[in-house]
Computed example of a mutant assay.
Amino acid sequence: MVFDEALRQGLIDAALAAGREIMAIYATEFAVASKGDASPVTEADQRAEAIILERLAVLMPGVPVVAEEQVAAGQVPEALGELFVLVDPLDGTKEFVSRNGEFTVNIGVVQHGRPVAGVVAAPALGEIFEGVVGQGARAARIVDGKAVDWRPIAVRAEPETGIVVLASRSHAGEDTETLLGKCRVATRVAAGSSLKFCRLAEGQADLYPRLGRTMEWDTAAGDAVLTAAGGTVVRADGKPFVYGKRDQADTADFANPWFLASGGYDVGALVVGDGAATDVKSE
């Protein structure tokens, strides 16, 4: 698929529109419910997803969309084909509920099993990231619900003084600590949602190890931005990290295995285990 400026802008506009809806609800005393897996969901998740789906139907007609809240409601495309879209309308609902601002809107386009384009918007932080593999990545500020001052972004080379590692606020366990023992770590930074991919993409950090389960809609957009910026995402066992996973023997459809995301840092020495998914809840 050709990602011309019109298509890229359409995906950006969809994420920004969802972000504006989320922020309108963020300013209220919103209610929090629980889904079947006990993860939180709010009206913001549902309304943002509806906006994105409406826009995608016009922007990419006929292309299957796998969206988090639709999947939770049992609405999954029967067949994905070689091209499909993964949507997480509010990645980091826990961050949204706790009002720390580190939640994102994720739209990722997957072709032949790998993300080829993605948009990650962080409306509460006033940041948006966008990338197309082979065409580069960029970031902008969000001002009054619109993206301004776009700038190109790229990963950085491994610092001589040690790497900056991004770890989830509540998901770093014994396996992660063992892995990080193999690295020369200068700083560890806690961060939420798909922003971790974007911090790698813009050269603010070097490694994001995720030794626990996530879902494909959590990672596709950030994966695309990072890859477009020159970074990499691989399974924790070193194998390619792919999308469109269904009928998995040991876990749910669209569940991810463990992975290592990096900027200019070589993760070759960090390969662990079999990269299997676990029953740890996604972010």
Results as ranks from 00 to 15, higher is better:
Val2Arg: 15
Leu7Trp: 08
Gly10Phe: 05
Gly10Ser: 15
Leu11Ile: 14
Ala18Gln: 13
Glu21Met: 13
Ile22Ser: 09
Ala27Pro: 12
Glu29Gly: 11
Glu43Pro: 07
Ile51Asp: 05
Leu56Gln: 03
Val58Ile: 00
Val58Gln: 08
Pro64Met: 13
Glu68Ala: 02
Ala72Trp: 04
Ala72Gly: 00
Ala72Asp: 11
Gln75Asn: 11
Val76Ile: 14
Ala79Leu: 13
Gly81His: 12
Leu86Met: 15
Pro89Met: 07
Phe96Gln: 00
Phe96Thr: 08
Phe96Asn: 03
Glu102Thr: 05
Val105Pro: 09
Arg114His: 08
Ala117Gly: 04
Val120Lys: 03
Pro123Leu: 07
Phe129Met: 00
Phe129Pro: 09
Gly131Leu: 00
Val132Trp: 04
Gln135Met: 11
Arg141Gly: 04
Asp144Arg: 08
Asp144Met: 07
Asp149Trp: 03
Asp149Asn: 09
Trp150Asp: 01
Trp150Gln: 06
Arg151Leu: 08
Pro152Trp: 01
Arg156His: 10
Arg156Phe: 02
Ser168Gln: 03
Ala172Thr: 11
Gly173Arg: 15
Glu177His: 13
Glu177Ser: 13
Leu180Thr: 02
Leu180Lys: 06
Leu180Met: 15
Gly181Ser: 10
Cys183Pro: 07
Arg188Tyr: 04
Val189Phe: 09
Gly192Asn: 00
Ser193Leu: 07
Ser194Val: 05
Ser194His: 04
Leu195Arg: 02
Lys196Leu: 06
Phe197His: 05
Arg199Ala: 07
Gln204Trp: 10
Asp206Met: 00
Tyr208His: 01
Gly212Thr: 03
Arg213Ala: 07
Arg213Asp: 05
Asp218Tyr: 00
Ala220Val: 02
Ala221Ser: 03
Ala224Met: 02
Ala228Pro: 09
Asp247Thr: 09
Asn256Asp: 11
Trp258Thr: 05
Ala261Thr: 06
Ala261Ser: 10
Ser262Asn: 11
Gly264Phe: 06
Gly268Phe: 12
Val271Lys: 13
Val272Ser: 14
Ala277Ser: 15
